[in-house]
Computed example of a mutant assay.
Amino acid sequence: MTVYAEVIGDPIAQSKSPAIHGFWIEKLGLDAEYRAHHVAADQLAAYCDARRADPDWRGCNVTMPHKQAIMPLLDRLEPLAKRVGAVNTVVKASDGKLVGRNTDVAGFLEPLRLRLGETHYFRMARILGTGGAARAIVAGLAGEGFTLVLAGRNPDKARALLDELDSGGEHHVAPLDHFADASDFPFDDREGCCDLVVNASPLGMRGQPPLAFDWSHAPPGSIAYDIVTDPVQTAFLKNAREAGFATIDGLAMLIGQAAAAFTHFFGVEPPRKDDAELRERLAG
């Protein structure tokens, strides 16, 4: 029988995961499949039981709204998934147990690795949004020595998130609309610093309101990083480029987290030399 993995969520039709994993399966010539499977909240426990008993199932990616709800239904959680408080990848172990992992952190950090390998005397990230995606981003950047400014519609929620994920850090919160209007803050010489501005919210996604961010709030040399994937080139990134900042789009994180999951599912690394072709296929 052909082994398979899949992505689950509610809704699920919009997921790009089948295109990504299917591309790699095709390139490697694997006898495997990757599917999309709609699972409603009240079906999640039954889904886990059924897949635990399926010898051909290798695991699944987990998208909204199940990244936290699935955790108590699993047999084990890797330490990072416990720390983040969210699972985006479930793998069946050799003993048949379901193991919850988080590859969102690795996926988010992947396009930053060269920069993070440098020595900086200060690192700061402005993270816009306090939803599920922000959990992995906060955990990942805190682990890389960043001071964080977490902005949301509810600053109390932002503070609670920072206290949960990195209680010992000297982080800050701000209302999201603080960044909508121009600032005349006199940034100091940022040479030797690493500054990020991350849209971790759905704002700017197709069908969602735009993200209001004035780039006078970004220190010189900042990198703009938007995790939105539809559209890939958001107004947030366009405005950042026009203001002279480097940018990273949402496909970088999406492909990065998928690559880590693919290796867990099928026991081989995906052919990353073909990323440009994969991006063209996803854009099409």
Rank of each mutant, 00 (worst) to 15 (best):
residue 2 T to F: 12
residue 6 E to Y: 06
residue 6 E to H: 09
residue 16 K to E: 03
residue 16 K to V: 01
residue 17 S to Q: 04
residue 19 A to M: 13
residue 21 H to L: 10
residue 27 K to M: 12
residue 29 G to T: 09
residue 33 E to A: 15
residue 34 Y to E: 05
residue 35 R to L: 15
residue 35 R to W: 11
residue 36 A to F: 09
residue 39 V to E: 07
residue 40 A to F: 01
residue 41 A to T: 11
residue 41 A to P: 04
residue 45 A to T: 08
residue 46 A to I: 03
residue 52 R to F: 09
residue 52 R to K: 15
residue 54 D to R: 02
residue 58 R to E: 08
residue 61 N to I: 06
residue 62 V to C: 05
residue 69 A to F: 04
residue 76 R to W: 12
residue 79 P to Q: 03
residue 81 A to P: 02
residue 82 K to M: 15
residue 83 R to N: 11
residue 87 V to L: 09
residue 89 T to W: 06
residue 93 A to S: 15
residue 95 D to G: 13
residue 97 K to G: 15
residue 99 V to E: 14
residue 99 V to K: 00
residue 100 G to I: 04
residue 102 N to F: 11
residue 110 E to W: 11
residue 113 R to N: 11
residue 116 L to D: 01
residue 117 G to N: 11
residue 119 T to I: 14
residue 119 T to V: 14
residue 120 H to Q: 08
residue 120 H to W: 14
residue 120 H to E: 03
residue 126 R to F: 13
residue 131 G to Q: 06
residue 142 A to N: 08
residue 144 E to M: 09
residue 145 G to F: 10
residue 145 G to E: 10
residue 146 F to Q: 01
residue 153 R to T: 10
residue 157 K to D: 09
residue 157 K to T: 14
residue 159 R to S: 14
residue 166 D to R: 10
residue 167 S to I: 06
residue 171 H to F: 09
residue 172 H to P: 00
residue 174 A to L: 05
residue 177 D to T: 12
residue 177 D to H: 12
residue 180 A to V: 04
residue 180 A to P: 08
residue 182 A to C: 05
residue 184 D to N: 14
residue 186 P to V: 05
residue 188 D to V: 13
residue 190 R to H: 12
residue 196 L to W: 06
residue 198 V to G: 02
residue 201 S to R: 00
residue 205 M to I: 03
residue 208 Q to Y: 13
residue 215 W to D: 01
residue 216 S to G: 13
residue 221 G to K: 04
residue 225 Y to L: 07
residue 225 Y to C: 06
residue 228 V to S: 04
residue 228 V to H: 00
residue 231 P to I: 00
residue 231 P to H: 08
residue 239 N to C: 10
residue 240 A to W: 02
residue 241 R to I: 07
residue 250 G to I: 00
residue 254 L to E: 10
residue 255 I to S: 08
residue 256 G to P: 02
residue 257 Q to T: 03
residue 259 A to T: 01
residue 262 F to D: 03
residue 269 E to N: 13
residue 270 P to H: 07
residue 272 R to K: 11
residue 273 K to I: 11
residue 276 A to C: 02
residue 277 E to F: 01
residue 280 E to I: 10
residue 282 L to T: 00
residue 284 G to R: 14
